[in-house]
Protein backbone atom coordinates (compact mmCIF):
# COMPACT_ATOMS: atom_id res chain seq x y z
CA UNK A 1 0.00 0.00 0.00
CA UNK A 2 1.47 3.30 -1.10
CA UNK A 3 0.15 5.06 2.00
CA UNK A 4 2.84 3.48 4.19
CA UNK A 5 5.53 4.36 1.66
CA UNK A 6 4.42 8.00 1.74
CA UNK A 7 4.30 8.10 5.54
CA UNK A 8 7.74 6.53 5.79
CA UNK A 9 9.13 9.13 3.34
CA UNK A 10 7.57 11.89 5.40
CA UNK A 11 9.13 10.54 8.58
CA UNK A 12 12.54 10.49 6.93
CA UNK A 13 12.35 14.24 6.26
CA UNK A 14 14.34 16.50 8.54
CA UNK A 15 12.47 18.71 11.02
CA UNK A 16 13.26 21.73 8.78
CA UNK A 17 11.77 19.99 5.77
CA UNK A 18 8.68 18.88 7.70
CA UNK A 19 8.35 22.41 8.97
CA UNK A 20 8.52 23.79 5.43
CA UNK A 21 5.80 21.35 4.34
CA UNK A 22 3.61 22.48 7.22
CA UNK A 23 4.31 26.20 6.78
CA UNK A 24 4.54 26.15 2.97
CA UNK A 25 6.40 29.44 2.94
CA UNK A 26 10.06 30.34 3.35
CA UNK A 27 12.77 32.63 2.06
CA UNK A 28 15.96 30.85 1.00
CA UNK A 29 19.42 32.16 0.27
CA UNK A 30 21.62 29.28 -0.71
CA UNK A 31 23.51 27.59 -3.52
CA UNK A 32 21.51 25.52 -6.04
CA UNK A 33 23.16 22.34 -4.69
CA UNK A 34 22.05 23.06 -1.13
CA UNK A 35 18.55 24.04 -2.26
CA UNK A 36 18.19 20.82 -4.25
CA UNK A 37 19.46 18.85 -1.28
CA UNK A 38 16.68 20.45 0.75
CA UNK A 39 13.87 20.10 -1.80
CA UNK A 40 14.65 16.69 -3.30
CA UNK A 41 13.38 14.51 -0.42
CA UNK A 42 10.27 16.68 -0.18
CA UNK A 43 9.61 16.35 -3.90
CA UNK A 44 10.01 12.58 -3.65
CA UNK A 45 7.65 12.52 -0.69
CA UNK A 46 5.14 14.69 -2.56
CA UNK A 47 5.16 12.32 -5.50
CA UNK A 48 4.52 9.27 -3.33
CA UNK A 49 1.93 11.23 -1.32
CA UNK A 50 0.01 12.03 -4.52
CA UNK A 51 0.22 8.42 -5.65
CA UNK A 52 -0.96 7.20 -2.25
CA UNK A 53 -3.91 9.60 -2.31
CA UNK A 54 -4.88 8.41 -5.80
CA UNK A 55 -4.65 4.82 -4.62
CA UNK A 56 -6.79 5.54 -1.54
CA UNK A 57 -9.39 7.16 -3.77
CA UNK A 58 -9.46 4.02 -5.89
CA UNK A 59 -9.97 1.95 -2.73
CA UNK A 60 -12.97 4.13 -1.84
CA UNK A 61 -14.52 3.40 -5.26
CA UNK A 62 -13.86 -0.31 -4.82
CA UNK A 63 -15.52 -0.28 -1.37
CA UNK A 64 -18.56 1.55 -2.75
CA UNK A 65 -18.83 -1.03 -5.52
CA UNK A 66 -18.47 -3.87 -3.00
CA UNK A 67 -21.20 -2.38 -0.77
CA UNK A 68 -23.47 -2.27 -3.78
CA UNK A 69 -22.69 -5.90 -4.53
CA UNK A 70 -23.16 -6.72 -0.82
CA UNK A 71 -26.65 -5.19 -0.81
CA UNK A 72 -27.52 -7.41 -3.78
CA UNK A 73 -25.95 -10.32 -1.84
CA UNK A 74 -28.22 -9.64 1.17
CA UNK A 75 -31.22 -9.79 -1.05
CA UNK A 76 -30.04 -13.03 -2.67
CA UNK A 77 -28.86 -14.78 0.53
CA UNK A 78 -32.16 -13.95 2.26
CA UNK A 79 -30.76 -12.53 5.45
CA UNK A 80 -27.54 -14.50 6.14
CA UNK A 81 -25.80 -12.69 9.08
CA UNK A 82 -22.43 -12.59 7.22
CA UNK A 83 -24.08 -10.86 4.31
CA UNK A 84 -25.16 -8.05 6.67
CA UNK A 85 -21.72 -7.77 8.23
CA UNK A 86 -19.81 -7.18 4.97
CA UNK A 87 -21.45 -3.88 3.92
CA UNK A 88 -21.12 -2.55 7.48
CA UNK A 89 -17.39 -3.36 7.55
CA UNK A 90 -16.93 -1.84 4.11
CA UNK A 91 -18.82 1.24 5.22
CA UNK A 92 -16.41 1.76 8.13
CA UNK A 93 -13.48 1.09 5.84
CA UNK A 94 -14.59 3.92 3.57
CA UNK A 95 -14.52 6.26 6.56
CA UNK A 96 -11.10 5.00 7.58
CA UNK A 97 -9.68 5.42 4.07
CA UNK A 98 -11.22 8.85 3.76
CA UNK A 99 -9.61 9.80 7.05
CA UNK A 100 -6.21 8.52 5.91
CA UNK A 101 -6.58 10.40 2.63
CA UNK A 102 -7.48 13.56 4.49
CA UNK A 103 -4.43 13.09 6.72
CA UNK A 104 -2.16 12.83 3.67
CA UNK A 105 -3.89 15.85 2.15
CA UNK A 106 -2.88 17.91 5.16
CA UNK A 107 0.82 17.26 4.54
CA UNK A 108 0.62 17.36 0.76
CA UNK A 109 2.59 20.19 -0.81
CA UNK A 110 1.70 21.85 -4.09
CA UNK A 111 2.99 20.08 -7.21
CA UNK A 112 4.78 23.27 -8.19
CA UNK A 113 7.55 22.25 -5.80
CA UNK A 114 8.55 19.14 -7.73
CA UNK A 115 7.25 20.15 -11.12
CA UNK A 116 8.52 23.73 -11.28
CA UNK A 117 10.77 24.87 -8.43
CA UNK A 118 13.12 21.88 -8.49
CA UNK A 119 13.67 21.85 -12.29
CA UNK A 120 14.15 25.63 -12.37
CA UNK A 121 16.83 25.50 -9.66
CA UNK A 122 18.44 22.45 -11.23
CA UNK A 123 18.73 24.09 -14.64
CA UNK A 124 19.69 27.59 -13.50
CA UNK A 125 22.35 25.95 -11.33
CA UNK A 126 23.99 24.72 -14.54
CA UNK A 127 24.61 28.32 -15.57
CA UNK A 128 25.88 29.61 -12.27
CA UNK A 129 29.41 29.79 -10.93
CA UNK A 130 30.28 27.52 -8.02
CA UNK A 131 29.19 28.98 -4.70
CA UNK A 132 26.81 31.54 -6.25
CA UNK A 133 23.63 31.72 -4.20
CA UNK A 134 19.99 31.88 -5.22
CA UNK A 135 17.61 34.08 -3.27
CA UNK A 136 14.29 32.33 -3.41
CA UNK A 137 11.05 33.48 -1.87
CA UNK A 138 8.57 30.64 -2.02
CA UNK A 139 4.96 30.54 -0.92
CA UNK A 140 3.24 27.19 -1.44
CA UNK A 141 0.70 27.60 1.37
CA UNK A 142 -2.23 27.41 -0.98
CA UNK A 143 -3.74 29.49 -3.71
CA UNK A 144 -7.11 30.17 -2.16
CA UNK A 145 -6.23 31.24 1.34
CA UNK A 146 -8.48 33.93 2.83
CA UNK A 147 -5.44 36.20 3.08
CA UNK A 148 -4.93 35.95 -0.69
CA UNK A 149 -8.52 36.93 -1.52
CA UNK A 150 -8.38 40.25 -3.33
CA UNK A 151 -11.94 40.65 -4.52
CA UNK A 152 -15.29 38.98 -3.99
CA UNK A 153 -18.23 40.00 -6.16
CA UNK A 154 -21.67 38.58 -5.34
CA UNK A 155 -24.54 38.62 -7.76
CA UNK A 156 -27.49 37.70 -5.55
CA UNK A 157 -30.94 38.53 -6.91
CA UNK A 158 -32.49 37.94 -3.45
CA UNK A 159 -34.22 35.25 -1.38
CA UNK A 160 -35.23 32.21 -3.39
CA UNK A 161 -34.19 33.94 -6.60
CA UNK A 162 -31.69 32.22 -8.86
CA UNK A 163 -29.09 32.05 -10.25
CA UNK A 164 -26.75 33.35 -7.54
CA UNK A 165 -23.13 33.91 -8.58
CA UNK A 166 -20.09 34.64 -6.45
CA UNK A 167 -16.82 35.53 -8.17
CA UNK A 168 -13.78 35.41 -5.89
CA UNK A 169 -10.40 36.59 -7.10
CA UNK A 170 -7.24 35.44 -5.33
CA UNK A 171 -3.75 36.73 -5.94
CA UNK A 172 -0.84 34.44 -5.17
CA UNK A 173 2.67 35.76 -5.84
CA UNK A 174 4.25 32.46 -4.90
CA UNK A 175 7.62 32.42 -6.62
CA UNK A 176 10.39 35.01 -6.62
CA UNK A 177 13.94 34.07 -7.53
CA UNK A 178 16.99 36.29 -7.82
CA UNK A 179 20.49 35.21 -8.75
CA UNK A 180 23.49 35.92 -10.93
CA UNK A 181 24.40 33.81 -13.94
CA UNK A 182 27.84 32.78 -15.09
CA UNK A 183 28.04 35.63 -17.65
CA UNK A 184 27.53 38.19 -14.88
CA UNK A 185 23.86 38.83 -15.74
CA UNK A 186 21.50 39.32 -12.84
CA UNK A 187 18.29 37.40 -13.13
CA UNK A 188 14.94 37.87 -11.45
CA UNK A 189 12.15 35.43 -12.09
CA UNK A 190 8.72 35.78 -10.56
CA UNK A 191 5.44 33.95 -10.93
CA UNK A 192 2.22 35.58 -9.79
CA UNK A 193 -0.95 33.50 -10.01
CA UNK A 194 -4.41 34.95 -10.22
CA UNK A 195 -7.20 32.52 -9.39
CA UNK A 196 -10.82 33.25 -10.20
CA UNK A 197 -13.34 31.05 -8.46
CA UNK A 198 -16.83 31.13 -9.85
CA UNK A 199 -19.53 29.70 -7.53
CA UNK A 200 -22.91 29.46 -9.21
CA UNK A 201 -26.13 28.26 -7.63
CA UNK A 202 -29.11 27.79 -9.94
CA UNK A 203 -32.46 26.07 -10.12
CA UNK A 204 -32.87 23.46 -12.81
CA UNK A 205 -36.00 22.74 -14.83
CA UNK A 206 -37.24 20.30 -12.20
CA UNK A 207 -36.91 22.97 -9.51
CA UNK A 208 -33.86 21.41 -7.84
CA UNK A 209 -31.14 23.72 -6.59
CA UNK A 210 -27.73 22.94 -8.05
CA UNK A 211 -24.40 24.47 -7.05
CA UNK A 212 -21.32 24.46 -9.20
CA UNK A 213 -17.86 25.81 -8.60
CA UNK A 214 -15.35 26.53 -11.34
CA UNK A 215 -11.77 27.73 -11.13
CA UNK A 216 -9.70 29.65 -13.62
CA UNK A 217 -6.04 30.25 -13.06
CA UNK A 218 -3.78 32.77 -14.74
CA UNK A 219 -0.02 32.42 -14.25
CA UNK A 220 1.91 35.59 -14.90
CA UNK A 221 5.58 34.75 -15.43
CA UNK A 222 7.98 37.67 -15.37
CA UNK A 223 11.64 37.36 -16.16
CA UNK A 224 14.06 40.20 -16.01
CA UNK A 225 17.69 40.02 -16.94
CA UNK A 226 20.20 42.76 -16.26
CA UNK A 227 22.93 42.34 -18.86
CA UNK A 228 26.32 43.99 -18.47
CA UNK A 229 27.36 46.41 -21.18
CA UNK A 230 30.84 44.97 -20.82
CA UNK A 231 29.50 41.65 -22.04
CA UNK A 232 26.61 42.57 -24.30
CA UNK A 233 26.15 45.30 -26.85
CA UNK A 234 23.35 47.71 -26.05
CA UNK A 235 20.24 46.50 -27.84
CA UNK A 236 19.43 48.57 -30.92
CA UNK A 237 15.92 49.53 -32.03
CA UNK A 238 16.16 46.69 -34.54
CA UNK A 239 16.94 44.19 -31.77
CA UNK A 240 14.14 45.52 -29.59
CA UNK A 241 11.58 45.05 -32.33
CA UNK A 242 12.34 41.31 -32.33
CA UNK A 243 10.97 41.04 -28.81
CA UNK A 244 7.60 42.49 -29.69
CA UNK A 245 5.48 44.61 -27.39
CA UNK A 246 6.06 42.41 -24.31
CA UNK A 247 9.49 43.83 -23.69
CA UNK A 248 10.17 46.41 -21.01
CA UNK A 249 13.62 47.87 -21.34
CA UNK A 250 15.52 49.89 -18.79
CA UNK A 251 18.89 51.38 -19.61
CA UNK A 252 21.52 52.01 -17.01
CA UNK A 253 25.05 53.24 -17.23
CA UNK A 254 26.49 49.74 -16.88
CA UNK A 255 23.59 47.42 -17.52
CA UNK A 256 20.58 47.06 -19.70
CA UNK A 257 17.61 45.40 -18.05
CA UNK A 258 15.31 43.28 -20.18
CA UNK A 259 11.90 42.48 -18.73
CA UNK A 260 9.59 40.01 -20.38
CA UNK A 261 6.34 38.52 -19.26
CA UNK A 262 4.18 35.64 -20.33
CA UNK A 263 0.68 34.80 -19.22
CA UNK A 264 -0.65 31.23 -19.18
CA UNK A 265 -4.23 30.36 -18.46
CA UNK A 266 -5.53 27.12 -17.04
CA UNK A 267 -8.31 25.56 -15.01
CA UNK A 268 -6.49 23.15 -12.70
CA UNK A 269 -5.31 24.99 -9.61
CA UNK A 270 -3.34 21.95 -8.43
CA UNK A 271 -1.42 21.36 -11.68
CA UNK A 272 2.17 22.55 -11.79
CA UNK A 273 3.42 25.29 -14.05
CA UNK A 274 5.68 24.15 -16.89
CA UNK A 275 9.23 25.40 -16.21
CA UNK A 276 9.91 25.50 -19.93
CA UNK A 277 7.84 28.69 -20.17
CA UNK A 278 10.41 30.48 -18.02
CA UNK A 279 13.34 29.18 -20.02
CA UNK A 280 11.67 30.31 -23.21
CA UNK A 281 11.46 33.86 -21.86
CA UNK A 282 15.12 33.87 -20.86
CA UNK A 283 16.10 32.13 -24.09
CA UNK A 284 14.41 34.91 -26.08
CA UNK A 285 16.66 37.47 -24.41
CA UNK A 286 19.86 35.52 -24.89
CA UNK A 287 18.99 34.69 -28.49
CA UNK A 288 18.39 38.30 -29.45
CA UNK A 289 21.26 40.17 -27.80
CA UNK A 290 24.68 40.68 -29.28
CA UNK A 291 28.05 40.29 -27.61
CA UNK A 292 29.91 43.47 -26.65
CA UNK A 293 33.03 42.66 -28.63
CA UNK A 294 33.28 39.01 -29.31
CA UNK A 295 30.86 36.27 -28.35
CA UNK A 296 31.66 35.04 -24.88
CA UNK A 297 34.41 37.53 -24.21
Amino acid sequence: MKFFGAVSKYRKLSPDQQNFIRQGQQKFNNTPEKLLEFFKPMAEFDKSCDEARDQLLNYIFICVALIFLGVIGIAVSSGHPLAFMLPVILFFMIFLIMFLRWMLGRIDIHNNLRGFVVPIINLLGQDMTAGQKIILDLDLRGKKLPSKLKQCVKDDPGWFSYPKTTTSTFEDPWFNLTTELVDGSKLMLTVDDEITQLDRTRKNARGKIKSKSKDKIKHMIRASLALKHKKYAVATQNDIEKFGSDLKLKNGQNRQIFGLKHVVKGTDVEANLDPKLCFELLGRVFMNVQPAQQKGS
Binding site: T129, I135, T178, E180, G184, K186, L187, M188, R222, S224, A226, K228, K230, K231, K248, K250, G252, Q253, N254, R255, I257, G259, K261, A292, S297
Partner: peptide, 27 residues
Protein backbone atom coordinates in the same frame (compact mmCIF):
# COMPACT_ATOMS: atom_id res chain seq x y z
CA UNK B 1 44.41 35.32 -18.82
CA UNK B 2 41.09 36.42 -20.28
CA UNK B 3 39.25 35.47 -17.10
CA UNK B 4 41.21 38.14 -15.26
CA UNK B 5 40.32 40.99 -17.57
CA UNK B 6 38.62 43.81 -15.75
CA UNK B 7 35.36 43.03 -17.51
CA UNK B 8 35.41 39.55 -16.01
CA UNK B 9 35.65 40.85 -12.46
CA UNK B 10 32.39 39.87 -10.82
CA UNK B 11 33.34 41.59 -7.62
CA UNK B 12 32.60 44.99 -9.08
CA UNK B 13 28.82 45.14 -9.05
CA UNK B 14 27.86 48.13 -11.10
CA UNK B 15 26.07 51.16 -9.92
CA UNK B 16 23.03 49.94 -11.82
CA UNK B 17 23.32 46.59 -10.11
CA UNK B 18 20.20 44.54 -10.24
CA UNK B 19 17.66 45.77 -7.81
CA UNK B 20 15.54 42.92 -6.49
CA UNK B 21 13.04 45.42 -5.11
CA UNK B 22 12.56 47.17 -8.42
CA UNK B 23 9.95 45.85 -10.72
CA UNK B 24 10.73 46.68 -14.29
CA UNK B 25 7.15 46.01 -15.20
CA UNK B 26 5.95 48.99 -13.25
CA UNK B 27 5.62 51.63 -15.83
Amino acid sequence: MRVFDNSADINDPDAEAFDPEANVFDS
